[in-house]
Every structure is written in C-alpha cells, then in structure tokens.
Nucleic acid binder design. Structure first.
Lengths: 219, 219
DNA sequence: AGGCTAATGTCAGCGACTGACAGTTGACAA
DNA sequence: TTGTCAACTGTCAGTCGCTGACATTAGCCT
C-alpha cells in the first residue's frame, strides 16, 4: 500500500524517522543503564532525559510511562514466542508445541535483544524488575496477557472455545509457572550461562506433566 | 503477656482502639464505594478522605497506598486459604489438599467479608480490579506471593526443597491458573451465584490433572 | 488534675504524568 | 530554492499520589 512498484517495503526511513529511532534507542539505553545501576526508585525520569538531553515531555511522547521503557526488551521476546507458536505444526500436542516454541526461538530472541542493548545489561535490569514490587507486578500482568494470547492459539489449534473449556488456560498457566520459576532462578544470582539456562528450562518443562499427577514421594 | 490473670486476651479494646477501628472501616467502605461507582482513576484520595472527613495524611497512615485499601477484602480471603492448607491431613495428595483448602473455606471467607463490607460491593470492586491494568497487576503480584507461600507449604508436606524441585511451584501455578480463570468468569458479568461459582471452581479443579496430559481431541 | 504518648492535622515538597501553547525542523510541492 | 504544511520538540502550569517535619489534639494512666 506504499509507493507503487516498490515491492521492498523498506526503501530508506528518511532523516526524520532515523532521528526518532536514534532518540528512542538513546532513551532506552540510558534508562536501562540507570535502572541497572541506581535501581528503579533511584532513577527519575529527569535523570533519564538529562542523560539524553531531551525534555521530559519528549520522553513521555515516546513512552507512556517510566515503566514502559523498562519492558522494552521483554517486549521483543514475547512477540517472537507468539510467532513461533503460530508456526508449530497443528498435529503437535499442545504442551510440546509450547515447549518447542520457547526453546526454538531462544537463540533468535537473544540475537534480537543484542541489537538494541547488551544482553548483560538486560540481565541486570531483569534483576531489578524481579526485585522491585511495582515492576514485578507489571511483569506479571504482561505475562498474563501473553499467556492469554497463547491460550487462545492453543484453543484454536485444538478446535476448542477458550471461554467454555478451561483446559487451554490451565495448561498455559502451568507452562507459565515453569517459565517464571526459571526466570526467578536466573535472576536469583546463580550465574548460569544462557545455554545452561535453556537446558534447565527444558528439564523443568519435562516435569510439567508428571508434576500434576500422582504421588511425588514414590519417585 | 497482657494483664496477669486475664486468660481472655480480648477484654475490651479501649476507646482509642475502637476509634481507630471505626476510622479504618469508614475509610475502607468509603473507598470501595467510590471505586465501584467512579472507578479507580475516577476517585482521588482526596475524595475518599472528604467522605470520611479526615486529612489525607491520616489516610496514608492507615494504608501505605491508595492501592492497599482496594485489596482490603482479598487480603482476608488469602489468609484463610493458607490456614486451611496448613490444617489439611499430610497424607492427602497435594492437588487434593489445595482443592479442599479453597472449597472448604469458601463459606467462612464470605462470612468474614460480609462483616466488613457487603459482598455485593466487593463484587463490584472486584470487577474494577480486573478491568484496571494497574490494579490487575497488583492483584497478580499478590496472587504470586500467595502461590509462593502455598508452594512452600506443599513442599513441606512432601518433604521437598522448593528451590531444588520445581514441581510444587508448577502444581500451584496450574492451580492458580484455575482460580484466575474462575475469578475472571465471575467478574466478566455472568451473574453467577456464589454457590454456582463454587461448583464451577470445583469442576475446573477436577480438570487440572487431565488438562496437562494427552490428547484433548479424543475426549 | 496533669503529664505522657499516640493519633491527627497542616504545610511544604518531590516525582510521575498531562494538556495547552509556542517554537523548530524535516518533508514535499511549486 | 523557497515556501508551506505537518511532525516533532520544548516550556509551563497544574493534578495526583505520596512523604517528612512539626505542631496540635485527645485518650490513657498515675
């Protein structure tokens, strides 16, 4: 729907657009750096805009809230997982599809993140998110929204009605539980490599089924 | 450790204490009423204190935040569930213990709530919580904290280490998923009676096990 | 009755966020 | 190139949640 004859939809962003992109990235980087070093409450919006040398008003034109900029990176990851799940073969069992969606897009996500901020910085910011009640609450809300979307996709695959059959949401809730446990462990300080992290998540996901059934004391 | 010889620990609260109790209750009732009618952002703290005729500073001495007063009622319910779970027979399978804890304390919870505010008012406030992003986030954080506590109790019953074995947290996550699905249905407008609500939750809980395993398309 | 202390009110101030208005700067046609 | 339009930005004033400091009031206890 753009210029006629231009199959390539990205000819060149134009100076204005590039400038905007630069400002946005600068704000994100400055904000995350500050959050990681001074903590959430320890950094004001004025601090952030001072580092980039724009007005406070401009900040709020790019981000609806101070919170939003903190979740810039997680936002990238979420969309990838959703895409990955949509691409899974429909015959695959639900839990397996979820499992593969997360694990297979793992590397791709990390690469995408690295293009905006160093992964190491993101990790430090993530620790701040986990340890700051207000941010953690926002994180959970975002996760809930993601899980809702995943549940709808699963329901679609299985030909079910999400609002009539609770199983898709229950399944995704258990799945989300694993993710959160893993994230927690990650941020808790155990300096796991990304690969080790991935393996741990895989191991935990294998236990989702068995965890719900039967007697744990026998095994 | 009070007055010597007084086995009854609650002789009479004293005027000062009674006055505090009245102020607190008045603030809660005024706040909930306002939230239910004008919505979350539509009511300021000044509105609340004006209705009770105290200073804003007093409000913040009773409640750490505007948010806290909104969760006064849910707070009552949470402690009951924890108590109920601790009281379950240790031989009971984990999921069954959780199930019984919630369902058995159902009536007791409603009675306790009714002593502070009409259940109908709480229901209206709950709808506001579910539909207000900031409040919903806070609700999820509170739920996460509750689930963490439940997971620790379950782990204790089974003789497991919560941080080493992910299964308690996964189980509780799935369980929490059911609770949230039910709450959502409740607040979504389907005017279910409390009894119908309870039955629905029971039905859903029965599906937690089957939901995780196997192929849904056969049944 | 009078002193102690908890409860409350008043005031000033910070930080997140918003609307209104004015100035600046790319984009695009003449 | 120039001029017009629209997008972007800055400034300012103001609201709302929340806090610390300090003065005032009012139960409590001897």
């Amino acid at each position: 729907m753009e210029t006629v004859g231009a199959v390539e939809a990205v000819p060149r962003p134009g100076l204005r657009e590039r400038k905007k992109q630069r400002t946005r990235d600068a704000l994100v980087r400055a904000a995350l750096e500050l959050f990681a070093t001074r903590g959430w409450e320890g950094t004001t919006v004025d601090d952030i805009v001072a580092a980039v040398d724009v007005s406070q008003r401009t900040f709020f034109r790019y981000f609806a809230s101070k919170e939003e900029v903190a979740f810039f990176v997680p936002r990238l990851a979420e969309s990838r997982v959703v895409e990955a799940l949509r691409a899974r073969p429909p015959a695959e069992p639900p839990l397996e599809a979820l499992r593969r969606s997360v694990l297979d897009s793992w590397d791709e996500i990390n690469a995408a993140v690295e293009q905006v901020v160093p992964l190491e910085l993101h990790l430090r910011v993530y620790r701040v998110i986990e340890s700051t009640p207000a941010l953690f609450a926002a994180h959970l809300r975002r996760s809930a929204e993601l899980e809702e979307e995943l549940a709808r996709i699963i329901a679609g695959r299985e030909g079910l009605d999400v609002d009539a059959d609770p199983r898709p949401r229950i399944l995704v809730a258990a799945f989300g539980g694993v993710i959160r446990v893993t994230e927690r462990l990650w941020s808790a300080g155990a300096d796991l490599s990304l690969a080790a992290m991935r393996d741990l998540m895989a191991t935990y996901l294998d236990q989702v089924g068995p965890a719900l059934a039967g007697d744990w004391r026998t095994s």
